[in-house]
Amino acid sequence: MTIDYDAKMPETQSGTEVYNTDPLIVKSSYEIDYIHSYAQDSEFFRALGKKKLMGSKCKSCGYVYATPRGHCMFCGSETEWHELPNEGRIHTFTTCYFGSEKFLPETPFNLIMVEFEGVDSLFMARLIGASQEDLKIGMKVRAKFKRNLTFSPTDVYFVPMKE
């Protein structure tokens, strides 16, 4: 057995970002893989690959949701899948100047709430192809779908339509 009394941990050229010294606040980054199930919402994400938006409709009272749910929030009855139109209008919008690490390089970006004919609730998505100055309540928009699915809500986005 050999003992090394001069052993050292390897040093790196990178340091630690310090934001405050009292109390000490430092920046630490880490990556994590997260395995999760879409469970009852799986059909919504599979449908995006078929260029379809799926919401849900109450089997009892007929309320149509732009975002799927298993049970009606008004009467508690089960819902069924309901295909949404791919065209709608901007109900409201906001411009995001900050985002998660994934979206930070794309800031600023526009988020819209889309209203569809015959649908009782709104659908939130990104809008591309229009500057903030061009956005208007009531503007016609249509859904577009990414060719290479990531099975995430960002697989669908909207673009302006000609009036």
Rank of each mutant, 00 (worst) to 15 (best):
Asp4Cys: 06
Asp4Ala: 10
Asp4Leu: 13
Asp4Ile: 12
Asp4Phe: 11
Tyr5Asp: 13
Ala7Pro: 07
Ala7Trp: 15
Ala7Phe: 15
Ala7Val: 15
Lys8Asp: 04
Lys8Tyr: 01
Met9Cys: 08
Met9Lys: 04
Met9Ile: 11
Met9Ser: 13
Pro10Tyr: 00
Pro10Cys: 03
Pro10Glu: 09
Pro10Phe: 01
Glu11Asn: 04
Glu11Ser: 11
Thr12Asp: 02
Thr12Lys: 08
Thr12Ala: 08
Thr12Cys: 03
Gln13Asp: 12
Gln13Gly: 14
Ser14Phe: 13
Ser14Gln: 15
Ser14Thr: 12
Ser14Ile: 13
Ser14Val: 07
Ser14Pro: 00
Gly15Gln: 06
Gly15Met: 03
Thr16Phe: 02
Thr16Asn: 02
Thr16Pro: 00
Glu17Leu: 10
Val18Ser: 01
Val18Trp: 05
Tyr19Phe: 15
Tyr19Gly: 07
Tyr19Pro: 13
Asn20Asp: 08
Thr21Ile: 02
Thr21Ala: 07
Thr21Phe: 00
Pro23Arg: 01
Pro23Tyr: 03
Pro23Asn: 09
Leu24Phe: 01
Leu24Lys: 06
Ile25Cys: 11
Ile25Arg: 07
Ile25Thr: 12
Val26Cys: 11
Val26Trp: 01
Val26Tyr: 06
Val26Leu: 03
Lys27Pro: 01
Ser28Ala: 12
Ser28Met: 05
Ser29Lys: 02
Tyr30His: 08
Tyr30Phe: 11
Tyr30Glu: 02
Tyr30Leu: 02
Glu31Ile: 05
Glu31Pro: 00
Asp33Lys: 12
Asp33Leu: 08
Tyr34Phe: 06
Ile35Thr: 09
Ile35His: 07
His36Met: 11
His36Ile: 05
Ser37Tyr: 03
Ser37Met: 01
Ser37Asp: 09
Ser37Ala: 10
Ser37Val: 03
Ser37Glu: 08
Ser37Asn: 09
Ser37His: 05
Tyr38Gly: 05
Tyr38Val: 00
Tyr38His: 15
Ala39Cys: 02
Gln40Ala: 14
Gln40Tyr: 11
Gln40Asp: 14
Asp41Ile: 01
Asp41Leu: 12
Asp41Thr: 05
Ser42Glu: 14
Ser42Val: 03
Ser42Met: 05
Ser42Cys: 03
Ser42Gly: 06
Ser42Ala: 11
Ser42Asn: 08
Glu43Cys: 02
Glu43Lys: 14
Glu43Pro: 03
Phe44Glu: 15
Phe44Gly: 01
Phe45Thr: 07
Phe45Tyr: 14
Arg46His: 12
Arg46Tyr: 14
Arg46Leu: 10
Arg46Gly: 00
Ala47Arg: 10
Ala47Met: 08
Ala47Tyr: 00
Gly49Val: 00
Gly49Trp: 00
Gly49Ser: 13
Lys50Gln: 14
Lys50Val: 07
Lys50Asp: 15
Lys51His: 10
Lys52Pro: 15
Leu53Lys: 06
Leu53His: 03
Leu53Glu: 10
Leu53Asn: 07
